[in-house]
Design a protein around this nucleic acid. Structure first.
Lengths: 217, 217
DNA sequence: GTTTATTGAACGAACGTTCATACTATTTTC
DNA sequence: GAAAATAGTATGAACGTTCGTTCAATAAAC
């Protein structure tokens, strides 16, 4: 694992975390105005989204009722609707926020001065470490995207395919191997119950090592 | 790919397919009695489960209403309840049937006379090919298990871990690499929209080749 | 004629959403 | 600086709909 970042180093170089995304969402939907109000809006948005993640992970987003969310967040039933237009739009807001923020930033981890092997390692570690920092977001989007309305489902797939193409290019346009690497990386958040006792750097090392066998030549 | 089965050969040697599982379910819930009735019960169970797979794949099982299922299956609203006790028990029936039938049979593909490398290949191809034959079952269980009641969720995880242990043993108790191989195999049904134009034997070849790098020594 | 299976209207509960009302800061008026 | 006016936010009872499920009535099978 020489000359590449580990998880600890990643957290210092990555500008994205849960609070950052919440702040951007709050800024987008509750434009400037008063400072005290902005802080309050951020707090409320935070508890709403955090509670949504917990409920969706245990009983599923579709089974989660607004009354569940009201009880879990502490906000009143009607008050929730100051932060989204409908239950469905809440899911869309979360999915859009992750896609915009995460998958625009990840490709900036590489540049053309690096070897393909180095770029591959940066993308893999970047993806795994970011999916740990934003694990509830990644898990929610993975699980709930499949029954979003068609345009949003298509957009989620296109985001995934775009990242996969990035990897495929490094492998000499080998999309099958690129799919394999995607599956390996995503397993960290999709099946996280398996990895409770696994160190994330060990996991990333292992995926990177396997991915080297996918390089051409 | 010498001395191991491909998908075509697999379909001739595997005793399990969609109709087999339906027949077992029908036999279990509609004991002997009349022959004509048994056939009718099998047909109805078939359309119910097939319609459930389609609806769950598009809008999700939780969003699927009994009226949706009634329209899609052609059975009356009340008539559905001759085949299960509640909506939830329908999901449980499907999950239990797959677990019982598939994961008890898969381990019979190997025996101790084979090398570890051969056993590994048999298990991997067996899993991938079976998940193709029973793709709607595998996809449904993968997607819906996570929000089943706790005992059933735990049982689904234990079934998965049991199969993973089988692989880990072949790798010298390397559970991390065994997890990787599970993730690679499952990608075939979890992200099948990616593999529309991929030949299943090519896919299995690729996973087997990667898995060889996980063998010790 | 008796048994078995099917039907869909009807039920109560729970759903997402709304809105008149109450509250709490901030601004304006004197 | 106190009082009044204004604007922004929070509340939860109430609304119409849809949900999973039941069951008296009906049809089919033996």
């Amino acid at each position: 694992m020489p000359n590449c970042f580990n998880f600890r180093e990643f957290t210092t170089l990555c500008p994205l975390d849960h609070d950052t995304i919440i702040a951007r969402l709050a800024a987008k939907h509750f434009s400037t105005s008063n400072e005290r109000r902005r802080v309050k809006a951020e707090q409320n948005l935070n508890v709403i989204i955090t509670a949504t993640f917990e409920l969706a992970a245990t009983i599923g987003f579709a089974r989660m009722s607004m009354r569940d969310l009201h009880k879990a967040s502490g906000l009143s039933l009607g008050g929730l609707y100051n932060y989204f237009d409908s239950k469905e739009s809440l899911a869309l807001m979360i999915a859009d926020a992750l896609h915009l923020v995460a998958f625009e930033w990840l490709p900036t981890l590489t540049d053309e001065t690096m070897t393909h092997e180095q770029q591959l390692e940066h993308l893999i570690r970047g993806h795994i470490y970011l999916s740990e920092t934003l694990r509830p977001w990644f898990y929610f989007v993975f699980m709930e995207s499949k029954n979003l309305p068609e345009p949003n489902k298509a957009s989620a797939r296109s985001v995934e395919l775009r990242f996969q193409s990035l990897i495929a290019t490094l492998l000499g346009e080998d999309n099958l191997h690129a799919s394999h690497i995607m599956a390996l990386m995503q397993d960290w958040h999709v099946k996280h119950w398996k990895y409770r006792s696994v160190n994330i750097d060990d996991f990333a090392d292992s995926v990177v090592a396997l991915s080297r066998h996918c390089l051409p030549g």
